[in-house]
């Protein structure tokens, strides 16, 4: 395997201190991901570097960061495929910074949990298969990894601290599309305000960065559509 040296320019911050960047030289090969390169730095050069990760295979959503200015999961981005001699690594935006590459995801989860988002959905993959005894229906996880990349990339989240944000609204749209035991009316009311779906300015940056096909931009537009139809129905007295 061909090894190469590259520079990692990493955003650093410790509480009470001024943020700055530190540069580390790392040796990588064509399989080295940004996450592994950062772990190498932490092991061999600077144990004070703080980062978050778990699964290493784009499932847990914990390793989201900005790589060369773009929100990505560090565990699936190969350093050499970026094609730059220096790779700039920064924490996600629009979340309170804790240390180095780690941000506080609590505000993100607050929004995400509010309309009692189900995280299991009916599986669309085996609609016609016979079900074995004892299984009522095939289910699967919702697409969203709760990685927060979309919120970091959203220009509206960049100005409105109370914006519900793309991921949470995409989850609300799922409740409307497939209510299961949740209340779609509650989800619709939840997004029907100035920090909700009407705030979005159709930049679609959320959809561009989403690693999991959630397509939050379109989900927000579907919520607007549902609310508009509901308003029409109410105005013309056609029920709820």
């Amino acid at each position: 395997m061909a090894e190469r040296k590259v520079e990692l320019k990493v955003f650093r911050y410790k509480q009470g201190q001024t943020p700055h960047y530190d540069t580390y030289n790392v040796t990588v090969d064509e399989n080295t991901t940004v996450l592994v390169a950062l772990q190498d730095v932490r092991r061999d050069q600077d144990t004070s570097l703080i980062l978050r990760h778990s699964c290493h295979h784009a499932s847990c959503g914990t390793c989201g960061m900005r790589i060369n200015g773009q929100e990505q999961l560090a565990c699936v981005v190969k350093v050499l495929e970026l094609g730059t001699p220096t790779v700039v690594v920064e924490p996600l935006q629009n979340a309170p910074l804790i240390s180095d590459l780690v941000v506080d995801m609590a505000p993100f989860y607050d929004r995400y949990n509010t309309p009692e988002m189900p995280y299991i959905r009916a599986s669309e993959f085996w609609p016609k298969t016979d079900l074995p005894d004892g299984i009522a229906q095939y289910t699967r996880y919702e697409n969203c990894l709760e990685c927060g990349l979309c919120v970091s990339a959203c220009p509206v989240a960049g100005t409105d601290s109370e914006y519900l944000g793309p991921a949470a609204m995409a989850a609300a749209a799922r409740v409307v599309a497939e209510p299961r035991d949740s209340d779609p009316e509650f989800a619709l009311n939840w997004v029907d305000n100035e920090h909700g779906c009407w705030r979005c300015h159709v930049a679609y940056e959320c959809t561009e960065v989403c690693p999991s096909d959630v397509n939050p931009g379109e989900a927000i537009m579907s919520l607007r559509g549902a609310l508009t139809r509901r308003k029409f129905r109410r105005v013309f007295g056609l029920g709820k």
């Binding site: 911050y13 943020p19 060369n68 200015g69 773009q70 935006q93 629009n94 979340a95 309170p96 910074l97 941000v103 609590a106 505000p107 993100f108 607050d110 929004r111 509010t114 919120v151 990339a153 220009p155 509206v156 989240a157 960049g158 100005t159 601290s161 109370e162 914006y163 944000g165 679609y204 940056e205 561009e208």
Partner: peptide, 24 residues
């Protein structure tokens, strides 16, 4: 619901709206 305000990196509308590097 907690806000996404970050004391270390305060929101900067000019950056949020006009920094289109790497954007689509």
């Amino acid at each position: 619901i907690r806000t996404t305000h970050d004391a270390v990196r305060p929101k900067n509308p000019l950056r949020a709206w006009f920094d289109v590097r790497k954007r689509n």
